[in-house]
């Protein structure tokens, strides 16, 4: 798994460190570092808890999200 952290965005709150059951992240010098990316199973609960949306997972399977309204989906695409 290729996990990247936007170090400018990361506020070093450590919520991803706390949240991940597989200990993928560690806090180093107030920035989250993915130290065990191969332990990531791609649940993305870290994305949900990150206040700065600083995390990026590449090469991941994106689960279906049919529960998002078409109306909301369209609005999301139009926010610039």
């Amino acid at each position: 798994m290729d996990i990247r952290v936007d170090t400018d965005a990361c506020v070093g709150c450590g919520l991803c460190v706390k949240d991940c059951p597989m200990h993928v992240y560690e806090l180093q010098n107030n920035v989250s570092v993915p130290v065990r990316p191969n332990n990531c199973m791609g649940c993305l609960s870290c994305h949900e808890i990150c206040p700065a949306q600083a995390l990026e997972h590449r090469g991941i399977y994106a689960a279906r999200r049919h529960y998002i309204d078409i109306k909301v989906c369209e609005m999301l695409k139009k926010v610039i």
Binding site: G42, C43, Y61
Partner: peptide, 10 residues
């Protein structure tokens, strides 16, 4: 259940 997330659950 070990962990839940928006994209997958372990």
């Amino acid at each position: 259940i070990v962990h839940t997330g928006p994209n997958a659950c372990l």
